[in-house]
Design a protein around this nucleic acid. Sequence first.
DNA 1: CACTAGTATGTTATATTATAACAATTATGT
DNA 2: ACATAATTGTTATAATATAACATACTAGTG
Lengths: 160, 160
Amino acid sequence: MNTKNPTALIPHNHASCIASALDKAQTVCQRNKVRLTELRLRVLELVWRSHKPLGAYDILAVLAKEDGRNAAPPTVYRALDFLLEQGLIHRIASLNAFIGCSDPECLHQGYFLICNQCGITLELHSDKVSKSIHQVACEYDFEISHEMVEVVGVCPNCQV
Amino acid sequence: MNTKNPTALIPHNHASCIASALDKAQTVCQRNKVRLTELRLRVLELVWRSHKPLGAYDILAVLAKEDGRNAAPPTVYRALDFLLEQGLIHRIASLNAFIGCSDPECLHQGYFLICNQCGITLELHSDKVSKSIHQVACEYDFEISHEMVEVVGVCPNCQV
DNA sequence: CACTAGTATGTTATATTATAACAATTATGT
DNA sequence: ACATAATTGTTATAATATAACATACTAGTG
């Protein structure tokens, strides 16, 4: 019953994914009146290199290898914190890793489908999921500030 | 619209929470033909000391202080892994911590409401949430193996 | 009972992820 | 150019987790 074919799961020109993400980031940062510095832009680009979540220390390694920038962890974590605050990336708690936000221009919760074979991770925006969570929280008189939904399984490409 | 009053959020005889959890654990382990050793039982008891998720190193500290057992991390992590496998506890990914499973006698996914003020964490079993997640996964032809739903917010007790 | 195979725990070392604290540098508005 | 704030650099360390191998315990078998 596959009714959706997200870009991440089909062959595509990924360069344009990256370009579009960096473009949107510029827009968002201008709107928010914050500075998308060279470092932050570079970290965002690295996060967007694939549709798989990327760890902070992986980013550090690329910065060292490709940019000759022997940065220490705080440098990367600060850039990641900035990108998180601006809604340009999400953190995947179950993987201690980060992934580009598919729609940074509007604030939202991200729900994720994570393939445990290939690592590709889809970001969903499901009203049904959102509503069911808010409803059950409401039943418990619980005031939601943040939702984390990470669904691990096997993507269609990796199913035998 | 508070329609539910979970034990964790109201004053209660917590000793009986613990006793009941340890009791159920015995049952589960007998059924699964696995050994609930002294250490594993003790770790489970510590996890059940409160309705707040407990870190592995907190457990280590209690073992050292109260039991004079100067265990190293692997000792605790192995006990935790065992308890996870038997479905006696859940791991809260966003907190790197562990909480007792409220209904270990049947296998299930746990959805959690986590209070960011007092730390108390409720485990939910919501068909609505479950169905919405499975439905959206199905739309993407995604085969679920594990769901993580951790909702952070403020519990009724902590609301101003 | 002694032996053995399997399970559980102990121990040492180290990997991985993340943050605190302070110094140096760079950008921005006046 | 100057003062201020924001950003990045740097050093050290905290917090979480696992690998690898040694020892001890348990349960079943002859």
